[in-house]
Amino acid sequence: MRPQSLSVLDRAIVGFDKALRAVIPNSNPSTRPLPVDSDALPELSINEARHVAGLMRINHTGEVCAQGLYHGQALTAKNDTVREAMHHSAEEEIDHLVWCETRLNELSSHPSVFTPIWYGLSFGMGAAAGLISNEFSLGFVAETEAQVSEHLQDHISQLPKQDQRTAQILQQMDIEELQHRSAAIDHGGTPLAPPVRITMRWLANQMKAVAYHL
């Protein structure tokens, strides 16, 4: 059933369910297996495992934020085409969320304890962007995905050489984040003003600093 065919109450219930699934670990089914060549787990030292877990906690937080952003934008989108695009991107990002959770579990680690806060803040920013205009909202997505791609590539460069498992997961995520960026631009996203881009980067850096540890 298409979201716009639901009643207001039904949409609220569906939205609440999606929010819960975004913030409660291991509550989402993945439609695709991990994008890895082997099921063998790499051998990592205690310090290496701790560092990889910190990086994956950041990436998991980024995927939680993506869910919040897309859900907020879908709520306030000004036409059905953009709303459907936001829903579609959010659904694709669920696989990324599950992949990050899976790798954290393998490392005997956990997502950020502030996950509900990250989701709530991102939902608010997404809803506000959607209220401004479709073009700004889609431009916000495009800039977000560009910055996500940057930190994914940075994380890949920081991984221990033997941890190809994590590297392959992040490489596939990077490919798809850039596809989402292109889709946002194709749907009419416009470049954001430099102060907005700088503020977004600053907020992302604060999130990463906290999520690495907590």
Results as ranks from 00 to 15, higher is better:
I169Q: 01
R11A: 12
R50F: 05
A211S: 15
R57L: 04
E177H: 05
T199N: 08
P191H: 06
G124Y: 06
S137W: 04
N47G: 01
V210N: 05
K161Q: 15
M56G: 00
C100W: 03
Q172K: 08
S137T: 11
A85L: 11
L214P: 04
Q67L: 04
A22D: 06
T199I: 13
N26S: 05
Q168S: 10
N134A: 01
C100N: 10
L55I: 07
V52Q: 04
D39T: 11
A74P: 00
L104D: 01
H51D: 08
Q164P: 00
L170G: 01
D174C: 11
Q4S: 13
H60T: 06
T61A: 14
P191Y: 03
P160M: 10
N134D: 15
I58E: 08
G54I: 07
Q153F: 03
A128W: 14
K208I: 09
E106F: 04
G120H: 06
R201T: 13
S149P: 05
M1R: 13
L178F: 02
V23Y: 03
T61M: 03
C100S: 14
A22Q: 06
S5N: 15
H96N: 05
I13R: 08
S133H: 12
F136Q: 12
A142C: 08
T31Y: 06
V23R: 03
E145A: 06
N26V: 02
V148A: 08
H180V: 05
Y70P: 03
E43R: 14
L6C: 13
T31P: 02
A209V: 10
Q73D: 06
D10P: 00
A66Y: 00
P29Y: 03
E84T: 11
I46N: 10
M200V: 07
R181L: 07
C100R: 07
G139V: 09
P111G: 12
A183G: 01
M125C: 09
I169L: 08
R21F: 03
R103E: 10
R83D: 04
L170W: 05
S30V: 02
N59A: 07
V98C: 09
L121I: 15
S108M: 03
V141S: 13
R181G: 00
H87I: 08
I156W: 00
S38P: 08
K161R: 15
Q171S: 11
A209C: 12
D174A: 12
N26A: 06
H151F: 13
W99P: 01
H88I: 01
L97S: 01
V98R: 01
G124L: 13
L170M: 10
V64M: 02
L192K: 13
R32C: 00
P33C: 00
E106A: 03
E101T: 02
S27A: 07
T199K: 12
A146M: 05
Y119L: 07
V14Y: 10
G124E: 05
I13N: 05
A77F: 02
Y70W: 06
R201F: 11
A142V: 04
R57N: 04
Q153K: 11
Q67E: 10
H151E: 09
E84Q: 11
R11I: 12
Q153D: 13
V52N: 02
H96K: 05
E176K: 01
E92Y: 01
I169M: 07
A22M: 07
I24Q: 02
D186N: 14
P195H: 10
M86G: 02
Q67Y: 05
R165Q: 10
D80I: 15
A66D: 00
W118P: 11
D17I: 04
L178E: 08
L159A: 04
M173E: 04
S133Y: 08
L6S: 11
D163N: 05
A66S: 07
